[in-house]
Design a binder for these strands. Structure first.
Lengths: 174, 174
DNA sequence: ACCGTAATGTGATATTGTTTCATACAAATG
DNA sequence: CATTTGTATGAAACAATATCACATTACGGT
């Protein structure tokens, strides 16, 4: 099972990203629906920019990208759309980079995910972090601390970018 | 032992912070020394601003505070000093707030600390995170991921700021 | 004194995020 | 249908965070 897991985690450069995007948007539709929120056209456009890759993108990247497509938005509009997407849980914020990435997993189970971000190719993945969050809860208890928000991120080298791995040719796009 | 631990972790508003500051600076001197780095006057001043409390402070807070003392620096100078302090390991960055806080612990053992930050009073503390980092290593291994940097931060309510706790009178300063 | 490197200064600029106020639009209510 | 209310969006300015490029100074070794 690890092989299937990691294939999904760090997709190869050449994978058919259309499927990922479609899945992510579908999941977003359901997420907004079940939470009684609305996936408006603007939010959908911003989601598509973010979910267009497995990378974390900055708010101004989205802004520029949409501008190139003729959609000139004010920063605040993008931030508001991002806020809605965050609230719906379909995108996440990479705190260590002030950037946002789409959730390409179904967050099965507790939904306590940790984040892995590759320094080389920029891919971002989520993995189950139940064990970590349990340890965190214990640490908090020991300090008499009531946790509200938890940030657990690792940067490093993904399986494709490690010295031993087969080099990818060209840019990694998704 | 938990009582002693947590007393150190989240010092009361009225504690004698001069001692904390003095200790932190002393530790910095040794850290710079043993790493062959130099704790220059500028770096020392910036360190004193950061270590002047148990809060995380922004680079521009430091800038303003030093300016009020007659020391008008350019942002880059502060950032360079901060970089040196980070490199020496005597201050840390709170990624979830783009701010910096002084290390008021001796990082005994592995040095794998996690960060707790109070939403209410702003106090920041480090606690041992060996268990968490071990789980992280396992998660990384499972994803065939080579970790480089790890960010583990929790925000929430410290022991002094929880509903049941005795309210502190006035501002918490250190 | 001279050189090389590290540290700092200076000015401009880039990046990231927010405030404020106005407007549009849609669902709920009378 | 008209009104009210809440949510979403638009527009302009501004605030906060961070870096670049280049000049200058300080310091250690020879």
């Amino acid at each position: 099972m690890p092989s299937r897991e990691t294939t999904i985690l760090f997709p190869t450069p050449g994978h058919n990203h259309g499927t990922c995007l479609h899945t992510a948007v579908g999941r977003a539709e359901r997420a907004f629906e079940t939470k009684g929120l609305k996936l408006t056209p603007l939010r959908r456009k911003v989601l598509q920019e973010i979910a267009g890759s497995h990378h974390a993108v900055g708010a101004y990247d989205i802004l520029d990208s949409l501008a190139r497509k003729g959609d000139r938005l004010a920063p605040i509009s993008v931030y508001r759309a991002i806020d809605a997407l965050l609230a719906a849980g379909v995108v996440h914020r990479l705190e260590s980079r002030n950037a946002f990435f789409a959730c390409h997993t179904s967050h099965t189970g507790s939904g306590n995910q940790i984040i892995l971000a590759c320094e080389t190719c920029g891919l971002v993945a989520e993995v189950n972090g139940d064990a970590i969050f349990q340890s965190l809860a214990q640490a908090a208890e020991g300090a008499n601390f009531k946790p509200q928000r938890r940030v657990v991120e690792m940067t490093g080298l993904c399986k494709h970018c490690q010295p031993g791995a087969i080099e990818a040719v060209g840019e990694i796009e998704a």
